[in-house]
């Protein structure tokens, strides 16, 4: 555990909690892509199956349980409790265009051809693109609430910090996981455009809106 990984995990946790609180306090999931949230629930479920087979640390187990629990709670709020506020018409990204190629890639390129390892790889690949329905929705409506941009910033920052963690681990532990690193790089690059808008607009007190 190094400082980049810890702050990455905390940034990830902050993102998840910001989103849950935003929906809960405003009693609305307007502007939130339910499809991205379902994908994140799938990501956590397929990645953390090792909760059933191996114990790494109390930190590891509790974070995994919190992430999975919050992911399903978010999906529940969007599709059940506050369904009336869900903006399905704008959440029109075709997720099969992500899930099918990512599934194929996980079967072809993995560390070990076993069910658990393929599902772990699938979750890594899927996570890297799971935000696309959300970014697509924002580009379609042309705007995002400020609290939603804070959520996206923390979520993007988390994988960027993990990149620093992997550089650290390579130098100090000789640890190298190319699948995680390349997927993490793709994931971070997808946020770059958003990071630019966040810094130039939201941090200066303006609402994030895209030119028509």
């Amino acid at each position: 555990m190094n400082v980049f990984r810890l702050t990455g995990d905390l940034s990830h946790l902050a993102a998840i909690i910001i989103l849950l609180l935003k929906i809960w306090k405003s009693r609305s999931c307007a502007g939130i892509s339910g499809k991205s949230q379902i994908l994140f629930a799938v990501v956590f479920t397929t990645r953390y199956l090792d909760l059933l087979t191996s114990f790494i640390s109390l930190y590891n187990t509790s974070m995994k349980l919190i992430y999975i629990g919050c992911a399903y709670a978010t999906v529940y709020l969007i599709y059940m409790k506050f369904r009336a506020t869900y903006d399905g018409n704008h959440d029109s990204f075709r997720v099969e265009f992500l899930v099918v190629p990512v599934g194929g890639l996980a079967v072809l390129i993995n560390h070990n051809f076993s069910l658990m390892e393929i599902l772990w790889t699938f979750s890594i690949y899927l996570e890297s693109v799971a935000i696309l329905p959300q970014l697509f929705m924002i580009s379609k409506t042309g705007e995002a609430e400020t609290i939603t941009t804070h959520y996206l910033f923390c979520l993007g920052l988390y994988r960027a910090l993990y990149l620093l963690n992997w550089i650290w681990r390579y130098y100090f532990e000789g640890f190298l996981d190319m699948i995680a690193i390349l997927a993490g790089l793709v994931q971070t690059i997808l946020y770059c455009d958003f990071f630019y808008l966040y810094v130039t607009k939201v941090l200066k007190g303006k609402k994030l809106s895209l030119p028509a």
């Binding site: 974070m63 560390h111 772990w120």
Partner: peptide
């Protein structure tokens, strides 16, 4: 390098 497919990261 251990090949015990344990992923300690989240």
């Amino acid at each position: 390098d251990s090949d015990d497919d344990e992923h300690d990261e989240l």
